[in-house]
Amino acid sequence: MENFTHFNEQGRARMVDISGKDLTVRTAAAVSKVVMHPDTLKAIKQGGISKGDVLAVAQIAGIQGAKRTSDWIPMCHPLPLTGVNITFGDNEEDELYIRAEVKTEGKTGVEMEALTAASAAALTVYDMCKALQKDMIIGPTLLESKTGGKNGDFVRDQNK
């Protein structure tokens, strides 16, 4: 178990000690999508959802999710985020795309914050539109890229 940093000498879970690590700029981007009926996507884009502006609320939920990741994921450190940006796109048919970009200057990465932000935004889209359609599909949700830290940069191979 010595290769897994989230286990102590007894094999039990622990929060990794990052006190000796250097402060560096860390970024991460994650994406998710929500697949829905074309009429649902059209209603979102035209402001026809009775609960309000779906994308505005999902954007705030994504930002809030990034900021509160350590409340959701037990071994995550609370991080002072320096930026969170949530953007949306669609295929003009039945897929809504969500991209979350997170940045900090810290001792640990923000991959989990980006993934949580994308997930929170997608879940909010579902919540706001479930009266119109209950069989929406969320996902996949995945890390697109990350920079900084001792393990270096990562960019997902888009061909896989």
Rank of each mutant, 00 (worst) to 15 (best):
F4Q: 14
E105Q: 14
A114R: 08
F7M: 14
G89N: 15
V57K: 01
E111W: 09
K160S: 11
K67V: 10
K45G: 02
D127L: 00
R12H: 12
N8H: 09
G62R: 01
D39Q: 13
D135V: 00
K67F: 05
E105T: 15
A117L: 07
D39H: 12
A58Q: 02
N3H: 14
D22G: 09
G11E: 07
D90P: 12
G148D: 04
N151L: 08
L142P: 00
V16H: 08
P78K: 12
L41H: 06
G149N: 01
M112N: 08
S50R: 14
N85I: 13
R14S: 11
P80C: 11
E113S: 05
T104C: 15
G62I: 04
E144W: 08
S50N: 08
A43R: 14
E113C: 08
L132H: 08
Q158N: 13
G152Y: 12
D17I: 03
K21P: 06
D53I: 10
I49C: 05
T27G: 08
V54N: 03
E2L: 05
I49F: 04
K160W: 11
K51N: 07
I44F: 00
A28I: 12
V54A: 01
V57W: 00
N8G: 07
S145I: 01
V84L: 05
T27P: 06
G48H: 08
A29T: 15
C76A: 15
E113A: 05
L123M: 13
K33I: 04
I98N: 06
A58S: 10
V35S: 14
G106E: 02
F154H: 09
F154V: 14
I73A: 03
M128Y: 04
H77W: 01
M136A: 02
A118I: 04
R68M: 12
L41T: 04
I49A: 07
G20K: 09
V54R: 03
T116V: 14
E113F: 10
P78V: 02
K42T: 13
I98G: 06
N3V: 12
L115K: 06
N91M: 12
I86D: 10
T87F: 06
L143C: 07
M75W: 08
D94Q: 13
H37M: 09
Q64M: 14
L79M: 11
K130L: 06
Y97C: 10
Y97G: 09
R99Q: 15
K21G: 02
I49N: 00
R156L: 14
L115S: 06
Y97K: 15
I138P: 02
I137A: 05
T147F: 00
I137L: 14
E111P: 05
D39I: 02
E92G: 15
K42V: 00
L23G: 02
N85W: 01
T82C: 15
T116F: 04
G152T: 07
M75A: 13
K45R: 15
T82F: 10
F154D: 11
K51R: 11
A120K: 01
R99M: 13
G52V: 10
M128S: 05
V102N: 01
K21T: 06
F88R: 15
L23S: 07
G89T: 12
M136R: 00
G62D: 03
G109M: 04
R14T: 10
P80N: 13
E2W: 00
A121L: 11
R99W: 07
G148V: 05
R12S: 13
A117N: 00
K146S: 04
I60S: 11
P38I: 05
